[in-house]
Write a protein that binds this DNA or RNA. Structure first.
Lengths: 212, 212
DNA sequence: ATCGCGCTCCATCTCAAGTCGGAGAAAAAA
DNA sequence: TTTTTTCTCCGACTTGAGATGGAGCGCGAT
């Protein structure tokens, strides 16, 4: 049927896929054309399955949902991708939206919400979960992070500081002079508004700059 | 039927419950007697539902699975509880086992694994996912953390170092002299095997000493 | 072509940080 | 009771860190 909306499910939890299948089975205008249990698999398979809408989990063993979203949209920007995940951290929401995801739902969503999101995604209308929307709003008018003022080189230096490196070590690692390192460090400290390298390292960790 | 194994599902994701229901439906010796979408709800309902086995998610909005497990087992230690979650961090696995959970499965588990785990749990036999078992093993004979060698006072000082405090600040905060602080710091550095306070702060963050 | 920015480098100076060696007092362990 | 540990403090010393004020070079924007 040309009228049916073709849906693909990407989730590494078999039971979630089963549950979603049960949701979709109630709608005769929606057709499940395929599944994938990892981001990599999704990227490999979607071209053969040519789905209209993709339900995408974010956290998966092989190839996370954000990368998969980017890669799929790079090949076919017309695909509508609905992020369907358990969490709504800043670190997940923003990259997902940037990657081009159309909608963002939580796994606590009901059958109706998912179905509606699929129809709307197919019509080009995004659906964002309330809690996620909150994150987006507060994220937008949050005070600009001091980190953004750092130059590329300064970020490199900060990373090494956060590893506990001394100025001499940093100099050797970056193939520059100690004096230069000191210049960068001073600039980093003033930009971050901290007093010394230890506070800079603390800043880096508390703002999850280089974590995981 | 008195022969059927009565199962209760506790998970805040409707789609997961749906998927699990589909699993259980294939077994005619297993009967789903009820569901709960939160830990609190599970504790309130299980006595009326009198399940033999409970499939329990860990991370839920209201009342996490570990608390629920403790509370349910406190009321009825005969209940077999199977933890069914997405993660296998040390911080999740150990408390769950301590709370008295019989089995620990990941949500990537297949239908057969879940079914088998239910039968075994009912027979009093635990099932632990391979990856989780790894965690348990490595967790048991993990090398004694250097942190444990720190004295109470030294831990206090380390915490302040990890906040980016200077020796002078630490002295004032702890109502002791700077020289004393230096003594503690030196001792901390040598015990942790690091070169300076910045590395000590990094150590603290990387070992999640004061983060949560 | 000029301007600003980012990266590099330098010298000098000040001071916090850290080491070393020592010591007294109180509390816990032997 | 004696011993050990912990917490406290001190002085003297070395050195790394950081501030300050320069400077030249390449590059993209105006």
């Amino acid at each position: 049927m040309a009228d049916k909306i073709k849906v693909m499910i990407v989730d590494d939890h078999d039971m979630v896929r089963k549950g979603l299948k049960a949701y979709l089975a109630t709608e005769d205008t929606i057709e499940l054309v395929g599944e994938a249990s990892s981001g990599h698999q999704a990227v490999r398979r979607f071209e053969d399955l040519h789905p209209d809408v993709i339900l995408m989990d974010l956290i998966m063993e092989e190839g996370n949902g954000i990368e998969a979203t980017q890669q799929i949209l790079a090949k076919d920007p017309a695909k509508k991708i609905i992020i369907l995940t358990s969490f709504y951290d800043d670190e997940q929401v923003f990259p997902a939206i940037e990657a081009g995801a159309m909608s963002y739902l939580l796994k606590t969503a009901s059958s109706e919400e998912i179905i509606q999101a699929i129809y709307k995604a197919h019509a080009g209308k995004p659906v964002i979960d309330g809690k996620v929307a909150q994150k987006l709003i507060t994220g937008l008018h949050k005070t600009p992070q001091p980190v953004d003022q750092l130059t590329t080189r300064e970020r490199e230096v900060l990373k090494l500081i956060a590893e506990g490196r001394s100025n001499a070590e940093i100099a050797k690692l970056l193939f520059i002079g100690i004096k230069t390192v000191k210049t960068h460090v001073s600039s980093i400290l003033s930009k971050l508004g901290v007093a010394d390298r230890t506070q800079a390292a603390v800043y880096a960790y508390q703002n999850h700059l280089f974590s995981k």
